[in-house]
């Protein structure tokens, strides 16, 4: 049985005057129907780039250098723009973009922007679309009487909810939520996360949740992927990830992560800075910061291998250091 979404060896670089930014390098993962997947990693590691690639919304200077994205057996990368536009975007994959605050067009009412999404993909009357919009808004906890407001009349949390309602407008199979809560205060953050979680479960959605905040991923997702400098370094169930991280980077991250629920620990910070993706280090990109790095790490890119059951990791040293288990 194949997964709903299958990403294999995806390689996408950005062309700039200074050279190529190797933002997505050999990224593979899959998403089952109804599954919720979290992608975590430091700022600038390429999370958003991956998400945008899934809808072929990459910026103009992006270049696909290899790999495939298969949605339900259909190669997304090979589709022409018109087909993607009509059949993939919003209809099958929708998203709550990273800057959801600014993602609503200031000159149209919230309601109209959601109606527009519905009318674009479905042959329904405007009335019908409006009815559905109001229901959606109610569902994410927005009073339908506010539907005719302009975005600037909404609070940050309301905008976020409205974005979520919009993402659900066309009953997509997959929703990508890119940092859905970053700009919100802790209480609102919790509320929004709850909405997302409930909806995902109730509607049986597949979801990719992107965050640099591990706690958000931990709370929401069944499965967690850790990215570092354009590549996936570890991919396993959330429970496993937090109990037994294998990659030295994941270990560092999770160590540095203050648990919402648990008591505060001293931050075990990772020394050094993430590499410049214009000119990443050869071999394992993490090696300059890795306490366990050996000669091989500086020369050979470690493949992402299922070293333990249902647990994939990209590290040359993983089996040589059982203390990490």
């Amino acid at each position: 049985m194949t997964a709903l979404l299958e990403v294999r060896g995806l390689k996408m670089h950005y062309g700039t005057v200074k050279g190529d930014v190797k933002a997505v390098d050999d990224v593979s993962f899959s998403l089952e129907a109804g599954e919720s997947l979290g992608i975590a990693g430091e700022s600038g590691c390429g999370k958003t780039s991956v998400a945008l690639a899934l809808m072929k919304l990459q910026p103009g200077n992006a270049k696909f250098l290899g790999g495939s994205i298969t949605l339900d057996g259909m190669n997304v990368l090979a589709l022409d723009d018109e087909k993607i536009r009509r059949e993939v975007r919003w209809k099958r994959i929708s998203m709550v973009p990273q800057a959801a605050m600014n993602a609503l067009n200031p000159v149209f009412t919230v309601k109209d922007q959601i109606i527009e999404a519905i009318l674009t993909h479905e042959d329904v009357s405007e009335k019908e679309a409006e009815k559905r919009t109001l229901e959606l808004l109610k569902r994410v906890g927005i009073d339908p009487s506010r539907a005719g407001n302009y975005p600037h009349e909404f609070s940050g949390g309301m905008k976020q909810r409205a974005m979520i309602a919009m993402a659900l407008a066309c009953n997509p199979e997959i929703v990508i939520a890119d940092e859905p809560t970053t700009a919100l205060d802790v209480i609102v953050q919790a509320q929004v996360l709850k909405v997302i979680k409930t909806l995902q479960r109730d509607l049986g959605l597949s979801m990719i949740l992107i965050s640099h905040d591990l706690s958000v991923v931990a709370e929401t997702c069944e499965r967690t992927v850790i990215m570092y400098a354009g590549s996936i370094v570890e991919n396993t169930s959330t429970v496993e990830m937090f109990r037994h991280p294998l990659h030295p980077y994941s270990v560092g991250l999770i160590g540095a992560f203050p648990k919402l629920t648990g008591e505060r620990k001293r931050l075990e910070s990772i020394t050094g800075n993430p590499p410049n993706l214009l000119d990443p280090p050869p071999g394992c990109r993490f090696h300059p910061r890795c306490p366990h790095a050996r000669d091989v790490c500086t020369r050979i890119v470690p493949p992402l291998l299922e070293t333990h059951e249902n647990h994939m990791v990209a590290c040359h040293m993983v089996n040589r250091h059982p203390e990490y288990r």
Partner: peptide, 26 residues
């Protein structure tokens, strides 16, 4: 370069609508 333009594209709007409705108005 605004985010709502990317969103409009993500919504599957055709380029004309994106340009003449969402971008132009602003």
């Amino acid at each position: 370069t605004e985010d709502y333009i990317q969103l409009a594209r993500a919504k599957g709007l055709d380029e004309r609508t994106v340009l003449y409705k969402h971008a132009l108005r602003n």
